[in-house]
């Protein structure tokens, strides 16, 4: 790695660390309902929302009521997004007169945005009206992020309370996380992004003449959108020439800010954060990366604060940071190392003051290798899925990092809420394993971990690998799955594995190369997104309810400390073992074999 890369990563980690305590403390105060300035100021709005919706804020909920409320809320969100897409041609704010999306694409996108996945089978600037983008997609960016946060808060309450039948009120938690956390942060970030050049308007698209004609190649597709192939199985390319360019417009900054803060990731434009209208400068890139991590990282402090021992939160934060640094180092090193086949042609791939060196394919020149690899790690270790470079063009081991980050369950800071609750489930499994080793009843934060918690934790952890592996196996076995793959051999397998991993983990980033806007992929990935989001949530909230009902055991000599180095190592080991052992066979068929084939030819 270059010195510039190390400096960028260290500065980024320090900036994140600086934000953890103030933001985490603020969120703890919000969800504990303490009389802070923000809650006093927002009280009229908050109580107006409750009156409008008929919410009784004094009514606490059991875990079942809390879960059903959350599920109904997200179902209504998905139905609304579906309706908007199908009706957009008759609705206002559609200057380009975009037609309604196909039913399967609308289904996929509705599930995608209601589940915080934001997988995009469509191209935003050529399919979605401004109304659909704002009222459908951006609103879901807020609400799905709030849904993730409230599950984490409910689990924290389960750990913090004792002998309680309830875990909070889902409507109050959803309202507070939206009104006091997401909206203010998104507003500040949107203004900061506009200052960097991110656009915000309702203008129709602008056609401009180019100074010189541009000739380019693109894969030829059939009527269903699948790439056509020649007799050897390679994609057929068509050569096109253009003299004009259409510049997309739209309310991008407002959607960009919540896209990052809510770890949603669905871009207004198809190129996502690689497009200069979404991410124009190095500073906007840094702000966007920081925005992705700020809430997931700060929630660890919120956790420590709400359970009455901030050391617990710092231990979880430390485990996440160690994993993060390891992953970003692998990505940066391999991208800077470059492609050996290109080096064999005599191309200089060493970094120098005149060039970034390494593998620059698929990366924006204004970001370079380190800022691209760091962004890729940030976006896939959380459940964001925004991209500022083409993950498909990374070296095999560079591309392995985003894939493996997601397969770990996105617990390295993770998505807003999802990262913390998934990591706490791993902590429960970790103390259970430690309890087995030392022959004591496992306990976490004074709560006995018994059969029910372990069954629920197992469900929460195993749902994702099950649907990823079954989905990938089904896709590679069926012609409908194979037909959308743009590259042959191991890389093509990686593209399918990446798609199912991304959908099932509610990440939403794409490896590229795959043309997934087909009936098969829209339906299959839609199913994976729903199951990968809500089935673990049900199990996590069941754990929350069960833990809240338990008595707290006082700390004794036999209690395993869960704020020390030993616990951090145990937690990292549990995450790695579960993630690695589940996915190593699939990874061996994809990026690992591709790496070996590449370097064998060097």
């Amino acid at each position: 790695m270059t010195a510039a890369a190390v400096t960028l990563i260290v500065c980024f980690l320090v900036l994140t660390l600086v934000c953890v305590k103030p933001v985490g403390l603020y969120m703890a105060n919000v969800f504990d309902g303490r009389p802070i300035w923000a809650l006093r100021t927002g009280a009229p709005l908050e109580h107006w929302i409750y009156r409008l919706c008929g919410v009784d804020i004094r009514r606490e909920m059991s875990w079942q009521q809390y879960t059903i409320g959350l599920l109904v809320f997200n179902l209504i969100g998905a139905l609304a997004v579906y309706a908007l897409q199908r009706l957009q041609v008759w609705l206002p704010l559609n200057p380009q007169k975009f037609a309604a999306l196909t039913p399967d694409s609308a289904f996929n996108t509705a599930v995608s945005f209601a589940t915080n996945t934001n997988w995009q089978g469509y191209s935003g600037e050529s399919a979605m009206s401004y109304l659909t983008q704002m009222l459908g997609l951006a609103v879901q960016n807020f609400l799905s992020a709030a849904s993730g946060i409230v599950v984490a808060i409910a689990l924290i309450r389960g750990l913090a309370r004792h002998s309680a039948d309830t875990i909070g009120n889902v409507w109050v938690d959803l309202t507070r996380s939206t009104v006091y956390v997401l909206v203010p942060l998104a507003l500040v970030l949107a203004i900061a992004l506009v200052s960097q050049g991110v656009i915000q308007n309702f203008s129709a698209y602008k056609d401009v003449s180019m100074a010189e004609a541009l000739t380019y190649q693109q894969p030829k597709t059939d009527a269903a959108g699948n790439p056509l192939r020649d007799a050897a199985g390679h994609p057929v390319q068509e050569t096109l020439t253009t003299h004009a360019q259409t510049l997309p417009m739209g309310p991008i900054a407002s959607q960009e800010s919540i896209k990052e803060l809510g770890t949603n990731g669905g871009g207004f434009l198809n190129a996502n954060s690689a497009h200069p209208y979404e991410n124009p400068t190095a500073l906007s890139n840094l702000l966007e990366m920081l925005a992705i991590l700020i809430i997931p990282a700060a929630l660890t402090y919120t956790f420590g604060r709400m359970v009455g021992d901030t050391r617990q939160g710092w231990a979880v934060y430390a485990a996440m940071t160690i994993l993060f640094v390891s992953m970003v180092s692998i990505a940066c090193y391999n991208e800077q190392r470059g492609n050996p086949l290109i080096a064999r042609l005599g191309v200089d791939q060493a970094a120098s003051p005149l060039q970034p060196g390494g593998n620059m394919e698929g990366k924006e020149a204004r970001f370079g290798i380190a800022a691209s690899a760091l962004f890729a790690t940030v976006t896939t270790s959380t459940s964001c899925g925004a991209v500022n470079s083409a993950h498909d063009s990374y070296t095999p081991l560079g591309g392995f990092v985003p894939l493996f980050n997601m397969q770990l369950g996105e617990v390295v800071y993770g998505g807003v809420g999802t990262g913390l609750y998934s990591m706490l489930i791993f902590a429960i499994v970790g103390v259970f394993i430690a309890g087995l080793m030392i022959g004591r009843t496992p306990e976490y934060l004074g709560k006995k971990i018994e059969a029910f918690e372990m069954k629920m934790s197992s469900i929460a952890i195993l749902v994702m690998p099950f649907i990823v592996l079954v989905g990938t196996a089904a896709a590679v076995s069926m012609s409908a799955g194979q037909g959308a793959v743009g590259n042959p051999q191991a890389h093509g397998f990686s593209e399918i594995l990446y798609a199912f991993t991304s959908a099932s983990n509610n990440n939403g980033s794409a490896f590229g190369g795959l043309s997934p806007n087909t009936l098969f992929y829209n339906s299959a990935l839609g199913l994976c997104m729903w199951l990968g989001r809500f089935w673990p949530i049900v199990a996590v909230l069941a754990v929350a309810g069960s833990l809240a009902a338990k008595k707290r055991i006082p700390v004794s000599d036999g209690t395993m400390p869960t704020h020390g180095v030993t616990f951090v190592i145990l937690l990292i080991g549990t995450v790695l073992l579960v993630g690695a052992l589940t996915f190593v066979p699939a990874l061996a068929l994809g990026p690992i074999v591709e790496h070996l084939m590449l370097w064998a030819r060097a």
Binding site: L71, L79, T102, P103, A110, V538, G545
Partner: peptide, 30 residues
């Protein structure tokens, strides 16, 4: 087709609702 995909959303919700009920029963004391 719209009916099929709206029904698919409702079926996904119903399946998840059933999971809540099943896990709640699993957690009840015997």
């Amino acid at each position: 087709m719209d009916v099929i995909f709206i029904l698919a959303l409702l079926v996904l919700y119903a399946a998840t609702h059933c999971l809540v009920v099943a896990l709640a029963r699993l957690g009840e004391p015997e």
